[in-house]
Design a protein around this nucleic acid. Structure first.
Lengths: 178, 178
DNA sequence: TGGTACATGTAATGCGTTACATGATTTG
DNA sequence: CAAATCATGTAACGCATTACATGTACCA
């Protein structure tokens, strides 16, 4: 049910095609959210039927497949705002590796240290990608206005930065304890 | 596919019934993992068929429904160890509220501040529960041995503590920016 | 008498992932 | 000539959540 709001969140910023949405989710925000085309296209049709988005037009560039550009409607923006302010239950952390860490007492310390170092490296890579992203976004910020969508994006990516640092730190502590 | 390893992770520590497993997951580790009875019972039968767990016996206490106690087998322990050391892709963060934060530029600042304060309070509650849990677990630790399952549990809950602090901190920053 | 805790299960539904299908055009 | 990118969709499968079904026993 929240995939719909993920699509609306992107469409609230600019008109996009289904393909664009998939790209933005998987390339730019991959570590946060992900969608498959099987979810995007049917959901767009469904929301069009409900009047939350509408087909802005079909873009036909020379020698390119036609792109169906969707834009958010007034009703869509209202629904998105309502969802954003709505309260709900806190999410679970659900990270497989935390469950694996629950079994460190069972496994060979040497091999576990190897795994922990690998995990740490992977989080380090993500951290670097986030930091690059924030630097990039900050050059796009002209005003320091909280109504600027770019400022919102930065805040989200900053959560990611802090999260990756926490994860790396936690890996270090586990390595020392092994 | 990982529910099976969640069950094995618990059974590696002590024999349990399906009901016990459900309770331990939802009450003790609720914010991390959760399962429904529809997943626990069929998965136990399936694993029994594959020889990963076996029925230790049926406990029949006076005036109580019979409890089917399962214990992990050698094969089950091996499978768990292998999974624990196996490498896999990093998980996504997938927290709905992060997606909501992506839309702060759209909504009324006053109302968003209210929501952020509410979220912060909820994370504070979880933090308190985790801290209590760690204190409790530490009294059970006799040796400071890394082969002690309790030490592993503490490490996992400590991740939770750090995570909740990070979340609260991030909420504060967002509130100031609104 | 009604609610809660113990205890084991099944059914229905929805969401997400992987894979498939099609077809044009650009790049190596 | 093959592989990757652009672009829109469908199909199959598995996992997860919610609700349902059954029955005992204790407590208020």
């Amino acid at each position: 049910m929240s995939i719909r709001y993920a699509l609306l969140s992107l469409l609230a910023r600019e008109p996009l095609s289904g393909y664009d949405i998939k790209q933005q989710m998987n390339d730019r925000f991959g570590p946060f959210w992900k969608v498959g085309s099987n979810q995007v296209y049917p959901e767009l049709s469904k929301m069009e039927g409900e009047g939350l988005v509408k087909l802005q037009g079909i873009e036909q560039q020379a020698n390119r497949p036609a792109r169906k550009l969707y834009e958010i409607t007034e009703a869509g923006r209202d629904a998105l705002i309502q969802w954003t302010l709505e309260s709900g239950e806190l999410e679970r952390i659900r990270d497989d590796f935390l469950l694996k860490a629950y079994n460190i007492w069972l496994v060979d310390p040497e091999r576990m240290i190897g795994r922990l170092e690998e995990i740490k490296r992977q989080h380090e890579e993500r951290l670097a990608a986030y930091e690059k992203k924030v630097a990039e976004l900050e050059t796009m910020l002209t005003t320091s206005d909280s109504r600027d969508p770019i400022a919102a994006t930065i805040s989200v990516v900053e959560f990611g930065i802090r999260y990756e640092r926490l994860y790396m730190d936690w890996c270090d502590r586990l390595i020392k304890k092994m």
